Simulated assay, not measured.
Amino acid sequence: MDALDLIDRKIVAELMRDATLPIAQVADKVGLSQTPCWKRIQKLEATGVLTGRVSLADPGKLGFGLTVFVGIEAADHSADWREAFAKATRELPQIMEVYRMAGEMDYLLRVAVPDMAAFDLLYKRLTDAVPIKNVTSHFAMERMKFTTAYPVDTLSR
């Protein structure tokens, strides 16, 4: 997709802040009428700029009081290993995010679990599913900042 124009960037910024806004409010905030605004939203969805609409939840209130960042050093770097690792992480819903990294670790995972016992069970399931050379876990004590909204430039260029 071509670079987003100012109106598209404003639409994306508004929807990242609150995807429940009625089209009329989004349109008003970005300076369009409803129909052109809705058409732009549909185009942003069709081109993959907007990938979904979700409600955010407090993990602690859902019983997921422990967040763990797990660094993985792969046992090997073959396509078969990567596929097995990807499958294992997809099948463990407590693994919220997986990133393939450059640097000292090969993969970084964000894990949400109720407690240490649940993390230990997840650790065992993951390491039973695929051979791993090294695992380093970092336990979050406090979430100081969290957002899902990217800092989209909404100023004219």
Rank of each mutant, 00 (worst) to 15 (best):
K145E: 08
W81Q: 09
D2H: 12
A117T: 14
L121E: 15
P36C: 09
F119H: 03
W38P: 10
L15M: 04
D128W: 15
H138E: 10
A118L: 11
T20N: 01
L21R: 10
I7A: 05
E45Y: 07
D58M: 03
P114R: 02
E14D: 05
D28G: 15
V111Y: 04
R17P: 09
Y107E: 11
S78P: 12
D153C: 06
A3P: 14
V130H: 06
Y150F: 11
R157G: 14
M16K: 03
G71I: 13
R53M: 01
R125Y: 07
A46G: 04
S78I: 04
A74Y: 11
S78F: 13
I41T: 13
T136P: 09
M101N: 09
L108D: 07
F119N: 00
M141R: 14
R110M: 06
S55C: 08
V49S: 07
K145Y: 13
D128M: 14
Y107I: 07
K133H: 15
D8Q: 08
A88P: 11
K124M: 10
E73N: 12
V26L: 02
I132P: 13
I41E: 09
T89F: 06
S137Q: 09
A27L: 07
F69Y: 12
T136S: 10
V113M: 07
G63H: 02
I72E: 07
A140G: 04
R90T: 01
E97G: 00
F119R: 02
L155C: 13
L155M: 15
D120I: 04
I41P: 14
T35P: 14
A117R: 14
L50Q: 02
M1E: 06
R9V: 06
L4F: 06
D153P: 15
M101Y: 02
I23W: 05
R17H: 03
R143K: 05
M105D: 11
L6Q: 01
Y123W: 09
E45S: 07
